[in-house]
Each structure stands twice: as C-alpha cells, then as structure tokens.
Computed example of a mutant assay.
Amino acid sequence: MKQSKNQYKIEAPSFNLQQYLKRIKFSGEVELNFAGIKKLMQSQLFTVPFENIDVQAGKIISLAGDDIVDQIINKNRGGYCYQINGIFSLALQEIGIPHYYIAARPMVNPGENAKTHFGIIATIENEDYLIDLGFGGNSIREPLKMSEIGKEIKHDSDTFTLVKTEDDEYLLQILVGKEWSNLYSFNLTPQRWIDFKPANYYNYSHPDSFFVQNLIVVLPNQLGKKILFKNSVKSIINGKTKIASFDDEDLKTILETEFNFKDL
C-alpha cells in the first residue's frame, strides 16, 4: 500500500503554537499563503540560532519532539537541522500546511558525504516549495519554489539556484562571487522522522563529523547574518563582511550579546 507523504512526522504533545509564535517574536495571524509562510520562516530564522553547543559539550542530541520543544521554546536555545526544521514542521502541522521530509547530501565539505541533512518539501497554494532553516550560514531565507529550475533566486543579499543533475536529483547552489557553489543534493523520496536517527547519531558523535570538530553558531537577520566559527565572529551586513576574533573566556558573553542566548 502506498504511504502518504504526510505520515511519520515528528510528534510533540507539548508543542503549543502560541508559545512557539511568542518564542520567534511572530506578530499577527499566520496566513496560509506564500507571504505568510515566508514571514513565519523568517521570524524563526531571525530568532532561533543554528548551533551545535551541546555537540561540542559531548551531549547526546535527542530527536524526541518534546525534547526539541523544551530546548528551543522553553530554554531559548537553537540546534542544527533536525531541531530547527523539526520545530518548524511542528508549526506547519499545527497550521495545516501539507509537507513531507527529504534527506539531502551536503556538498560543502570535500570528499564523499552521506545524506545527513534534513529538509522539508511543503505545498503552499498548490505549489511545492523547498523549506530549510537549518543549513547554517547558507540556509535559504524563504520557501524556494521547486518548479523554478535553473533560475537565479535572490534571498536578500544571497543568490540561490536549483538545478537538476544527471542522476535526476535536485542540486541547491549558492552564488559566491561569480561562481556557483554546491550546497546539497536531494531527491523527492519522502523520509520518516525515524530515518534521521542514524544521521543524527553520526553528526553528534562521530570524530569525522563537522559538528564534532567545530563550534558553529549562526543567526541570520534582516540585513544579513552573524556566524560564530571556532574563535571568530563574522558579521555580514548588506553583503559586506567584518570578522573579529575572541578568546575562549569571552564565548559566553558573545553568545548572549550577539546571538540572543540566555542562561547557558
């Protein structure tokens, strides 16, 4: 029997839409159109950081829905793709936007990579869109229409394109200078939430994992983004970049003042 694309999603009985909207500083009613979902997506992007602080602390990263709600809403924290896109999926479920999950193969690191990234395909006004809030400094900033193959798509100061590969997969690229850089590839095979458990385990525990090797925190804003990587903070505003280094003892203060963390 053919499985529905809307089955097997993250579950979290503790998720409360109004608490979520308050956490992401969303004002007004959520409209079930492109503009409304873009507003919801950017409200979360600008308030919930992409971060791997618990990975760096050697902690187990839970994929239990209620644990993700507790971390992001109650503890005012962020997470990486599973937590960030996971909580957005809970919001989409609550407001009634049809969507399903995809597994993507990151291509920003050298060598062969497994499909460890988690994204969302949502149907908005009878069109399918890629939604992804959890790809660090190179995340798309609004729903990206799947039918716009080969087009240059501006998201504020970033430019993306979606192309089809010879393997009949989709490849998301970002324009860096005058060259297109690969971000990740994927197909439209629906994934169950449980399918991401092995990838999550690899990401938080394997010595080869980028997240085990490096501290990273990213918080986009209306004019650009701030990226903490190892011992420096890169601020990108209207396409212009400034980089400042810091000492280990200043990390807590920087996380609180620059990335809106509380009670670390």
Rank of each mutant, 00 (worst) to 15 (best):
Q3L: 08
N6P: 06
Q7H: 13
Y8C: 11
K9A: 06
E11N: 10
F15T: 04
N16I: 02
L17D: 05
Y20P: 05
R23S: 04
I24Q: 09
F26A: 04
F34P: 07
G36V: 00
M41I: 00
T47S: 14
V48C: 10
N52T: 01
N52H: 06
D54L: 10
G58S: 08
K59D: 00
I60R: 11
S62H: 12
S62L: 09
L63M: 15
G65H: 08
D66C: 13
V69M: 10
N74E: 07
C81S: 02
N85C: 05
N85Q: 03
G86V: 01
F88P: 11
S89A: 12
E94Y: 08
I97N: 08
I97W: 08
I97E: 08
I102Q: 09
I102F: 05
A103R: 15
M107R: 14
N109W: 09
P110L: 06
G119C: 14
I120A: 09
T123Q: 15
E125A: 13
D128A: 09
D132M: 04
L133H: 08
G134F: 05
F135T: 00
N138H: 03
I140H: 08
R141A: 03
K154V: 02
F160G: 06
T161P: 10
E169L: 15
G177W: 04
K178A: 08
E179I: 11
W180C: 02
L183M: 13
F186W: 11
F186Q: 06
L188P: 05
T189A: 09
T189F: 11
R192N: 04
D195M: 10
F196W: 11
F196G: 00
F196D: 01
P198A: 06
Y201E: 15
Y204Q: 06
S205I: 03
D208K: 15
Q213L: 12
N214P: 10
I216V: 14
V218K: 15
L219H: 14
N221V: 04
G224E: 11
K226P: 01
F229A: 13
K230A: 01
V233F: 14
K242L: 13
S245H: 13
D247M: 07
D247A: 15
D248Y: 09
E249R: 13
I254A: 13
L255R: 10
T257L: 13
F259L: 08
K262V: 07
K262I: 06
